[in-house]
Every structure is written in structure tokens, then in C-alpha cells.
Design a protein around this nucleic acid. Structure first.
Lengths: 153, 153
DNA sequence: TATAATTATATGTTACAACACATAATGTTT
DNA sequence: AAACATTATGTGTTGTAACATATAATTATA
């Protein structure tokens, strides 16, 4: 399937196509992953928060700000995502007595169990680019890094 | 700036990095473009609908379904996006007398003027990948196409 | 032709991003 | 210590994706 067919449009040039292609491909990969998450009744950002809580368990409890820094999306509304996970019993949230502005957030055993049961989602994520060989992925990463160097200066 | 620094994390392998890199880079490019739109008080999907209305002006009026097919996101909620544009006076929306289920949507002169005033946004979009040379963009497109062939089968 | 299937659009819900603003706790300055 | 600044988090709003369901109009079928 070519992107031209799919979008029913034409591109001004390779750069134009590149931008649309990036958006389109990433959206599609995200959707693939989203589908594998959906079976577990959890939204993508909630999953990401749980992953961070598990990944940094040695430094638990974590604050909202710490979690926020580690989200792919820097503007994540972690307060309300944590709300939803709290209501599902997947994490605990307490006032930090050292600094009462902060919240101490920790994954529960229920949360850990859920992540364990989602192991195949993580495996799925690793296969999304499997159509590229090692050299190609490396080249993709090089190109993406190069693109970003441009836009962040 | 490396993505490793930025995400404060490590990657399992190049494939893992590739997926995160795609998500992250695309998000950043999208944000760049979003910023240039914001000055004109219009949201990204609303802009996309206006572009389609202008682009296919020769076939006007267009139906909601026609617009939907041409959106990058196939699940776009075109009905409500059109609502918002209608309220801003940027398009007209009438019942189609041939098939009264359909709506006939057409961009207004106010909508065309807005797009004209946004010409620099389009130019901006074309420069987002300018850090890559022609060969590199071509290679990027090849890799993205190859990724998608995988995930759509 | 009455009925059933399909189509085009609308509406309602949940989760979220991006933003502005609010609030409370803490730190700093005078 | 009182006043001000900063920090951590919360809340409210708008726009949207993804989804389910609704409704009306049209087409196909028995």
C-alpha cells in the first residue's frame, strides 16, 4: 500500500511527502500499539505512567513532577492520569510529609500484576519495526536525529 | 540534543529506540507546525479541513464523508470540526437536496482569506525536514514505506 | 410496496494535550 | 517575622481521537 493511494493526494516534493509520511506512519504504529493495549482496558498514557512507576520502583515513591519529566509528552497532564489509575487501584497516592506540596505515588501489586499480564504488548512494540533490518533501523535513527537537530536549534 | 538525554532513559536496542524516536520526532515536528498555526487562532484539524475545502474547490460543495476520506486521520470527527468552522464563519453547510442525508460544505471567502494569511505556515511546513538533503529524505520515505508495508499486512 | 439493509451524519462518552489560572506549601528577601 | 517569589499540584476549558449508538434518508430485497 502506498501512502499516495491511501491519502488520495499528491505531494509537492519528497520533503512534503516526508512530513506526511512521518505523521502517517507514526500514527499507524501508535494505533497498532494502542490496539494491543486496549484489550487490557488501559489507555496509552496510563500505561506509560505505570511503566515509569515500575521502572523507577527502586526510587519509590515518585512525585508527579518526576513522572511528568519522564513522559514522552512533556505536557502530559499527569495529575489527572494518576487520578484515573488511582481510581482503578493501580497505584497509591499520598501526601509527602517532607514537602506537603508533593504527592508520593507508588504502583500497587495490582498495578504490577497488570503490567505482567501485558508482557505481550511490550513484545508487540518491539516487532513494529521488524520489517527493517538492523542497518535500516540504524539509518532511520540517524535521519530522525538529524531532523531534530534542525528543529531544536 | 540526543534523544537519550531528552528522555532520560535507555533503550533496549535500535528497534526500541527507533519506535520512540519516530514518536518523539514526529511529535516535535507536529508541535513546531502547531505553534505556527496557533497565531491564527485555528486548530490543526480545522486547518486541515479548510485546506481540503480549498484544494477541492473545483468539486465544491463537498460532503462530510469526502472530507473525512482525505483527512490524515481516518477517524476524524469531521462533523464536529465542521461545526466549529461553521461557527467561525469559515465555511457554509447546507442540506444537499439531491441526497438529504448529506451536507454540502463550502469554504467562505473569509475562510479563503484566512488560508491566504497563513501562507507562511505552509512554507514553514516545507522547511521542517530541511536538515536532510534530497537523498536522505528519499531514504526516509523508503524506510517509512517499508515499515508500513509490514504493519498493514 | 412494505421491510430490511445500508449510508451519511450526528451525538454522547472517555481520555488526553495544551493552555490559563488557582491554591497551597516552601524558600527567599527585607 | 512579614512580604514576595517559586514550586508542586490541581482545576477549568477547548479541541480532538476513538468509540458506541442514534437517526434519518436512501437503496435493495422479498
Amino acid at each position: 500500500m502506498s501512502i499516495e493511494d491511501d491519502l488520495k493526494g499528491r505531494f509537492r516534493n519528497e520533503y512534503h511527502k516526508g512530513l506526511i509520511n512521518l505523521t502517517y506512519t507514526t500514527k499507524q504504529l501508535g494505533y497498532e500499539f494502542f490496539l494491543s493495549l486496549k484489550k487490557h482496558g488501559i489507555a496509552e498514557q496510563q500505561y506509560n505512567v505505570l511503566r515509569i512507576l515500575r521502572g523507577f520502583r527502586s526510587q519509590a515513591p515518585l512525585t508527579i513532577g518526576f513522572i511528568k519529566e519522564r513522559m514522552l509528552d512533556k505536557d502530559s497532564d499527569v495529575s489527572r492520569i494518576v487520578d484515573r489509575l488511582f481510581e482503578k487501584g493501580l497505584l497509591t497516592r499520598k501526601e509527602n510529609s517532607e514537602d506537603r506540596r508533593q504527592k508520593s505515588v507508588e504502583i500497587t501489586s495490582k498495578g504490577l500484576l497488570l503490567l505482567d499480564s501485558m508482557f505481550e504488548c511490550e513484545k508487540r512494540a518491539d516487532t513494529l519495526l521488524s520489517n527493517l533490518n538492523e542497518t535500516e533501523v540504524r539509518e532511520l535513527n540517524r535521519l530522525l536525529d538529524k531532523i531534530r537537530n534542525n528543529t531544536t536549534n
